[in-house]
Design a protein around this nucleic acid. Structure first.
Length: 305
DNA sequence: AATCTCTTCAACCGCTACCAT
DNA sequence: GATGGTAGCGGTTGAAGAGAT
């Protein structure tokens, strides 16, 4: 074990804070082409002024095609509660039982929703039941469950952990989908209720995503099955997956109100907001691109809300 | 309309586990 | 076995929206 490790990067030269669509683009583009065998070296190779850890987190939590979005189902919540009751704050273990959910997401859901809900329900009793008590018997149970989870994780990596694992079906039509949830951009705070019958009637919360149209355009242009994933390694690709993935992208565009925007308009938007890349110094280019992007997320005011 | 407080959650930080040499 | 480097994990923070006053 290495102790007293050096900082992972020069903190003074890396950008911090929320990711811009331009940065997302770069990361997605790079990982799609080269995979992510070395996170530490990735930012430099990809031309990102970010720490490798930051890139890794961004990819794992938001940009990876494996990430499922939308509200947690009651089944998922119950799973979290049960597992937390048994193994405690082992977020990554719990996440391994919920395909498409990340440890960070689960941790947040627990801290902001489930913990409070359980505390309300059973008052002080919860202190005993929600936190794993380390008696000898429960400790044995805890180990057994951890082993079970490990086994399941191995199985999942060979079966359901595909980049196209039923995105569409993971988005119930009544899902409250936010631009934030869909794009991974933080703190948009503009909740867009997805009405299965079409655009919302009040006409307020539509088209909040003009600033990352190019991101969706880019995603649209990708063959999602080219992403470096476990299923790719195991050689599992099928036409069905591809179709389903495309469907997912179409679905998202539709939900986010992007489907009505023709490509020419999108192009125009991109040209006016992002400088083109060729023949430009990388750092300069990124700096300019990042500066020129509208502040993310778009404020409700800019959306006319 | 302005201000304050609460809530949410993406991102960061520091640590440990694991692997290579 | 010691050392050094990277990936991953879990706790924490802080910005921003939502709601209350």
């Amino acid at each position: 074990m290495g102790r007293g490790r050096a900082p992972c990067c020069d903190k003074s030269k890396v950008k911090k804070g929320p990711w811009s669509p331009a940065e997302d683009l770069r990361l997605v583009n790079f990982v799609q082409k080269n995979g992510h065998s070395n996170w530490r070296a990735l930012p430099k190779q990809a031309g990102l002024l970010r720490c490798g850890k930051s890139c890794r987190l961004r990819w794992i939590n938001y940009l990876s095609p494996d990430v499922k979005r939308g509200n947690f189902t009651s089944e998922e919540e119950q799973t979290i509660i049960n597992l937390h009751n048994t193994i405690g704050n082992k977020w990554s273990k719990i996440a391994s039982c919920l395909p498409g959910r990340t440890d960070n997401e689960i941790k947040n859901v627990w801290n902001t929703h489930l913990k409070k809900r359980l505390t309300k329900k059973s008052g002080n009793n919860m202190e005993n039941s929600s936190c794993p008590s380390r008696t000898s018997s429960s400790s044995t149970q805890h180990m057994q469950i951890e082993k079970y989870i490990d086994d399941q994780t191995v199985q999942q990596s060979n079966t359901i952990d595909s980049p196209t694992s039923s995105y569409a079906s993971n988005y119930p039509k009544s899902t409250v989908l936010t631009p934030n949830e869909a794009t991974g951009h933080p703190k948009s705070g503009v909740r867009v209720h997805v009405d299965p019958s079409g655009p919302s009637n009040d006409g307020k919360a539509e088209m909040p995503l003009e600033s990352d149209i190019d991101f969706w355009d880019f995603l649209d242009s990708l063959d999602p099955l080219q992403f470096s994933t476990k299923s790719e390694v195991s050689g599992e690709k099928s036409d069905g997956d591809e179709i389903e993935c495309k469907r997912w992208l179409e679905y998202l565009e539709n939900e986010l109100g992007l489907s009505g925007v023709d490509n020419e308009t999108k192009e125009q938007e991109i040209v006016t907001t992002v400088p083109q890349h060729e023949g430009v110094n990388l750092e300069q280019e990124i700096g300019v691109a990042l500066d020129s992007f509208p502040i993310w997320p778009p404020s409700p005011l800019s959306l006319g809300i």
